[in-house]
Design a protein around this nucleic acid. Structure first.
Lengths: 254, 254
DNA sequence: AAACCTAGCTTTGTCGGACAAACCGATAAG
DNA sequence: CTTATCGGTTTGTCCGACAAAGCTAGGTTT
């Protein structure tokens, strides 16, 4: 072989990948806007000059990446990747990496505190109305662990939304997806747990209303510490997020 | 329509999706461990009783999701989803949602501070050695914005790694991928910017060594504020992460 | 015997064509 | 004006095929 390479490595990406990349580029740089149609498979076949099987493999890649979706009639269109869907992938990754609840807890504490700080500063009247509705609903289902846990998840999503920071909303999602489902187990297992949860939410909401950052942070920390105490009654923080639990969360999501 | 639904919605997932789900289940619940082979396409065809095209579409889905990959000889095997790859998707999503640099900055500040706190508490000698090597390298390339920016990215990745918190590592990645590439522009545009950056890294590393959390946080904040000041000289924080910039980051990633 | 080479088998990536089911649009019937 | 029907499209799936690249095993060379 030559001492100095004459040619650089030729990029031989498979055709389906090139198809996916080409469409992705058009969406990312805005030539195709979310909601706009991509065209039928047949049209893509004609444009790219490859076989339909190849086009379809490329489509699957983009679909999984959340860049395109099929509307009601299964036609292809660009779309905004849902945080939620992507976060699910990340949650899965966290499980496979066998992270511990301690890691989840520590990071969630950071992110939820950041959320409440943003929410106190920037929550709109709509945000507050949504949160109010949520708290009222929580109060009604305080005796039902499953429904209450669902309300809890929603409360924290709304809080992040109220922070008006979409990066934060996204960053907290993967951890939250793994962290909060345990709430059901805890609320179900600890008497008075439900009431304490609703009370904490109430105080947090109140702090947002009064734009009282200190109180908001205080109650958010307290709320999470409550979770932690409850969790430690049923499991160790240093155990990895078990496959068994994972299956629970996974099944619930479907 | 009947008052009470007699039948529940029939689940008619396309075959390729079922193939993907079936393989995903095996990986998630640990029956196939990362690194283990999935089998050839032909074997999957035989096992699932569907056509190879269908199997291949299912494979593409999992591949994109990061659950399987092809090894050197293109055989299929399960794998641990790389944060990095998933984070790339998320970064893309952030761009499409037209987040602003202010949102990025705010969230990064939160996450980097959390990183340094964890790093000060739990950095191992290996972590410190890696960081030391990085800082030394930075000092050598202080005059080269591109290389220095690369060192900066690595420094913060290593810092997150030193926190021993994988959830945090993951959570900071999407924002960091969008946030740090601007470093090159800033260092290139602001005289003394490079020197200040290296100095900050040095102080941060020193704080980790001395387990001095307060100093670590202080210098991390200062470091990020420096970025912010530099950035505001060339653009507004409230402008969305422009498509043009996005293309820059995107091209660099390839 | 160890290293090398070559022919054959396997696997992937791609292609062309095919067909049933679902969907759309428009027209015909009530 | 609503309902029913009927092509034309589009998707999901299947079948069969082939070139290129990798792997395997056997034979060859040193």
């Amino acid at each position: 072989m030559p001492a100095t390479p004459l040619f650089r490595r030729i990029d031989i990406a498979p055709a389906y990948q090139k198809v996916a990349d080409a469409i992705e580029r058009e969406i990312i740089n805005g030539r195709i806007k979310p909601g706009e149609p991509i065209g039928t498979e047949q049209q893509l076949v004609a444009q790219f000059g490859v076989n339909r099987s190849t086009v379809r493999e490329g489509i699957r890649v983009l679909e999984e990446g959340g860049l395109i979706r099929r509307d009601s009639s299964r036609r292809l269109q660009a779309c905004l990747p849902r945080y939620n869907k992507l976060a699910t992938r990340l949650s899965r990754a966290l499980i496979l990496h066998e992270v511990t609840f301690r890691e989840l807890f520590e990071t969630s504490m950071t992110l939820e505190v950041a959320s409440i700080e943003g929410a106190v500063e920037r929550a709109t009247v709509e945000n507050i109305a949504e949160l109010t509705g949520n708290v009222e609903r929580s109060a009604h289902v305080v005796g039902n662990p499953a429904e209450l846990a669902e309300c809890d998840v929603e409360f924290h999503v709304l809080m992040a939304k109220a922070s008006q920071n979409r990066v934060l909303q996204l960053a907290r999602e993967p951890a939250a997806q793994l962290f909060f489902p345990t709430t059901e187990m805890i609320v179900g297992g600890v008497p008075e747990g439900g009431a304490r949860l609703v009370e904490a939410h109430r105080h947090i909401l109140d702090a947002i209303r009064r734009r009282d950052k200190e109180a908001g942070v205080l109650w958010t920390r307290r709320h999470l510490q409550d979770w932690r105490r409850g969790f430690e009654k049923i499991a160790s923080l240093d155990r990895s997020v078990e496959h068994t639990y994972m299956e629970h969360a996974y099944a619930a999501r479907q």
